[in-house]
């Protein structure tokens, strides 16, 4: 299988403080990777660096995505290339309806790909279909992006957008945090329905419960800015039983 994403010796800082200290990770097309680790290990930093958050500086290493140097691409171009981040804390954008927001996003991507903008009928039809996937209320679509949404609504909105943008590599950053079990199930089912043979996911989580629904092929443990262990799905159970302390003690 082809390498979709290759991270080599990635070092990154925020406000001059080094958080990532040499990450190596390869994701092939079709794979689901889970990245687990205790709080403060660098999980969110990794997802933010991948999508080009300006607060983080890459000091060393490289990221090759679809054969391109990802670090040279602007955040919106990374998005157009099929990279999607489901944010841990989705931001509120008052006054901008989800419909308008998605139309702008889809048409920007189409422009990037040299396609004509999507017509209104087609777009609304797509909205309807994708909304059904995550049981997103039609009323919600007319509201401003994330404004006044409950935690569960925000996360469902993230997965809905993921469905709309059909990414090649989706990064789910702590998508399970703040969700009750019903919301978690809806979100996870949405993700599973969107899974295709040629798309990959990075599932970042502290707990195993999301991984009961989204089955990873490979599990990594991130600790102190490095991947300290990589194994199959059985690692999740091991972590569940033993907690993170044994990792901390080993390192």
């Amino acid at each position: 299988m082809e390498n979709l994403l290759e991270i080599r010796n990635l070092h990154a800082t925020i406000d001059g403080k080094e958080i990532l200290k040499g990450i190596n990770l390869t994701v092939k097309a079709g794979e689901v990777h889970a990245i687990m680790g205790p709080n403060g290990s660098g999980k969110s930093t990794l997802s933010n660096v991948l999508v080009g958050h300006p607060a983080y500086t890459v000091t060393e290493g490289e990221i090759i995505y679809k054969g391109k140097n990802l670090l040279e691409l602007a955040p919106e171009d990374r998005s157009h290339e099929g990279l999607f981040l489901s944010f841990q804390y989705p931001v509120e954008i008052p006054g901008v309806s989800i419909t308008n927001f998605m139309r702008a996003a889809i048409n920007a991507k189409r422009e990037y790909l040299g396609q004509e903008p999507m017509n209104a009928t087609e777009f609304l039809k797509m909205m309807r279909e994708k909304r059904a996937l995550v049981n997103l209320d039609s009323k919600l679509a007319n509201r401003s992006v994330n404004e006044g949404f409950s935690g569960g609504e925000k996360k469902r909105n993230e997965i809905f957008q993921m469905a709309m943008l059909e990414p090649t590599l989706s990064i789910l950053d702590e998508t399970d945090s703040g969700l009750d079990i019903d919301a978690l199930r809806i979100v996870a089912e949405g993700v599973n329905k969107l899974k295709r043979d040629d798309t990959s996911s990075l599932v970042i989580t502290h707990y195993q419960r999301l991984l009961d629904y989204i089955k990873p092929d490979i599990v990594h443990i991130l600790y102190n800015g490095k991947i300290v262990k990589t194994a199959g799905p059985e690692l999740v159970m091991e972590l569940e039983e033993r907690g993170y302390d044994w990792i901390k003690n080993e390192n």
Partner: peptide, 27 residues
Amino acid sequence: SEEQLFYCNQRGIGTEEAIGLIVNGYA
């Protein structure tokens, strides 16, 4: 906020367009 702009960027919307979108939403 920068976070709002980045959120739009991540969804593929350029900064300039994002500002236009947010300002129009505001108005």
